[in-house]
Simulated scan of single mutants.
Amino acid sequence: MRNDGRLFGQLRKVKLEVNCNKFADGSCFVQIGNTHVICIANVDETVPRFLKGTGSGWVTAEYGMLPGSTNSRMQREVTKGKASGRTQEIQRLIGRTLRTAVNLVALKERQIIVDCDVIQADGGTRTASITGAYVALYLALQKLHKQGGVNIFPIKEQVAAISCGIIGGNILLDLDYSEDSLAQVDANFVMTKSKKIVEIQATAERKTFSQEELSQMYALADSGIGELIKKQNEVLNIA
């Protein structure tokens, strides 16, 4: 058993709430344990310069942690003058993930911008952001399709993400902050509904790990992502 009473292979409590922002084309509030993220997707009728004239669209993401999201106030990155390396890495990961979910040609020459703002952080903010961002993206594309902006519904893959780790020789799913700070191995898995891998980030923090341990983490992540995909489908009313 873990600090919060979960089994090693058990997710924290997951809550997804759609349409949490009335101004967005698509929005989702995601709560995984004590990690809370607001994900907002908006349609922009322009594309980056390198895509002009290609007939293809784009999906991009921005990520940030609000000052009160951690136990000591974080300084807003805008006051520092630039995003941190961690922020840039995470928002690129979210953007790459969401682009795998979308038929960019069907989107035509427009882009979807997804903003993920962490309002409370207790581990797994990037994986929670990806899981909620997909829901916000889906809703924005659904609205665009219903309005006739695209002829073909652009979603081609469903995606979600979860963390795993090794602590004291035990392989755990969905680490909270206290666990993450103790983890000997820390990994994030991003996968599709069809069980294809989008990205695996696995790092030896205090000890190396074997191929067998990686396979065990993969199996746990596969199970957890399956549960998250079911939660996504529930709030999106997909059978």
Rank of each mutant, 00 (worst) to 15 (best):
R2T: 06
R2P: 03
R2I: 00
N3A: 14
G5Y: 06
L7Q: 15
R12W: 02
K15I: 09
V18Q: 09
N21R: 13
D25S: 12
D25W: 03
F29P: 00
I32H: 09
N34C: 12
A41H: 02
N42V: 02
V43R: 11
T46L: 02
P48L: 07
F50W: 11
W58Q: 06
V59T: 05
P67A: 09
T70R: 06
N71A: 14
N71T: 12
S72Q: 10
S72Y: 08
M74Q: 04
Q75H: 10
G81V: 09
K82H: 11
A83W: 03
G85C: 09
G85V: 08
G85N: 12
Q91E: 02
G95F: 04
L98D: 01
R99V: 00
N103F: 05
Q111M: 11
I112K: 14
I112P: 01
D115F: 10
V118L: 01
V118G: 01
Q120H: 10
A121Y: 04
G132E: 06
A133H: 05
A136Y: 01
A136Q: 00
A140L: 03
L141S: 09
Q142E: 11
K143P: 00
L144T: 08
P154H: 13
V159P: 01
A161H: 07
I162Y: 08
I162K: 13
S163I: 00
S163Q: 04
C164V: 12
I166Y: 06
I167Q: 14
I167L: 15
N170K: 15
D176M: 13
L182P: 03
A187V: 04
V190Q: 05
M191L: 15
M191A: 12
T192S: 14
K196N: 10
E199L: 10
I200R: 12
Q201A: 13
Q201D: 04
A204V: 10
E205L: 12
R206A: 14
R206C: 03
S210A: 12
Q211R: 15
E213G: 13
E213H: 15
Q216A: 14
Q216Y: 09
A219M: 11
A219E: 08
A221W: 03
A221F: 02
D222L: 15
G226Q: 06
L228Y: 03
I229E: 03
I229Q: 10
K230N: 12
K230R: 15
K231W: 04
K231M: 03
K231I: 03
Q232W: 03
Q232R: 14
N233H: 14
L236T: 08
N237S: 15
